[in-house]
């Protein structure tokens, strides 16, 4: 990434008429999204999800194939909904990583080609920063401790000394991965998402089944919880010891308690009075409720968004891209390679 002189924007800034329009492309996992942001306003944000049959996860090459088949339709939708033409765009932002290689390449190819066809600068964006910037834009949280929870990531992040710093994280699998894989074990539908269906089933759970609880300082581990429940689920269900709903309820309570605990510890550590939850798991209302209780006890404020902005989307890449572009960053084409980490 290189800094470049943005004379046009400096001039516009001086005149007070700057309007910067960024189109953002996201496709690091099973969602493909294109969003357009103009100075903090989301003009459009269409998205498609690659949904696999119950019991199956999504594999890189099939996911890339899905993205290839719909991406141009989604770009057209984003432009039409925003009532903009390519000439109105100032910058093309895309997810550089982290994520699955094949889907990332698919989206980067289209972003690179469009940037050149339209004669616009290209900008590679970090997926995690995209989530955080989108959360900040939507909630107007000022300087929050961020809990970033999704199918691929679980981190407690705070801005400290001019950088986002990771205070705690999972030492194995992400919380969303734990939920998704549990859903596969008992064949819960992936439509609209396994996490959403677990959340609905959990509401009907009554019996709490004790599960391993693994917190070390500000880090968490979910792989042991998953192994335990994978092993126990079929036995307990077939013997009628508990219902699938009870297992969903117990798993959510256990996992979310762990997340609330490490978030509280990070807040105490940084003296923070705000929490922002981002990432796909962040739209779970039970997680938001439990976090809210902790925040209330500490006199802190909770910020969260709904599925439109929590779950991977194009606007979050456009928003992080907008911040970077306005700070003078662009990505030259030879540097626009994607990264899985």
């Amino acid at each position: 990434m290189q800094s470049s002189s943005l004379t046009r924007y400096e001039q516009q800034d001086a005149l007070g008429v700057a309007m910067t329009v960024v189109i953002g492309f996201e496709g690091s996992a099973n969602k493909i999204g294109v969003g357009i942001v103009r100075d903090g306003e989301v003009l459009s944000n269409p998205r498609r999800t690659y949904i696999t049959p119950p019991g199956q996860g999504f594999l890189p090459s099939e996911t890339a194939k899905h993205h290839r088949s719909v991406i141009l339709t989604v770009v057209r939708e984003a432009l039409d909904e925003a009532e903009l033409s390519p000439a109105d765009i100032d910058c093309v932002a895309y997810t550089k990583g982290p994520g699955m290689g094949a889907p990332l390449v698919t989206v980067a190819l289209v972003a690179r080609t469009l940037a050149q066809l339209w004669g616009k600068p290209l900008l590679g964006v970090n997926h995690c920063i995209g989530h955080i910037e989108m959360g900040r834009l939507i909630t107007q949280a000022n300087n929050p401790t961020v809990l970033y929870v999704s199918g691929g990531n679980t981190q407690v992040v705070a801005f400290s000394e001019r950088r986002y710093r990771i205070f705690g994280e999972t030492i194995d699998i992400a919380v969303g991965n734990c939920l998704d894989r549990f859903a596969r074990v008992i064949k819960i539908s992936n439509d609209p998402s396994p996490g959403y269906n677990i959340e609905q089933m959990a509401k009907k759970g009554t019996e709490y089944v004790e599960l391993p609880y693994t917190v070390k300082g500000m880090d968490v581990s979910f792989s042991g919880v998953l192994s335990y429940i994978e092993e126990a689920a079929h036995k307990m269900l077939s013997s009628g010891q508990c219902t699938a709903e009870d297992l969903c309820f117990s798993l959510q309570e256990t996992l979310f308690s762990m997340l609330v605990e490490i978030t509280e510890r990070a807040m105490a550590h940084c003296g923070s009075q705000e929490v922002l939850i981002v990432g796909g798991v962040g739209c779970n209302l039970r997680l938001q409720e439990m976090m809210g209780i902790m925040c209330k006890e500490r006199g802190a404020k909770l910020f969260a968004t709904d599925e439109r902005f929590c779950i991977d989307n194009g606007a979050m890449i456009a928003q992080a891209g907008w911040e970077m572009f306005r700070s003078g960053y662009v990505t030259e084409l030879p540097d626009s390679w994607i990264t899985q980490r």
Partner: peptide, 21 residues
Amino acid sequence: GSFLDHLALVLETMEAFGPPI
């Protein structure tokens, strides 16, 4: 094989949003 998939996508993008300015 994967290059041909990528090439096809670039061509489709050009057909849908080209020609270049």
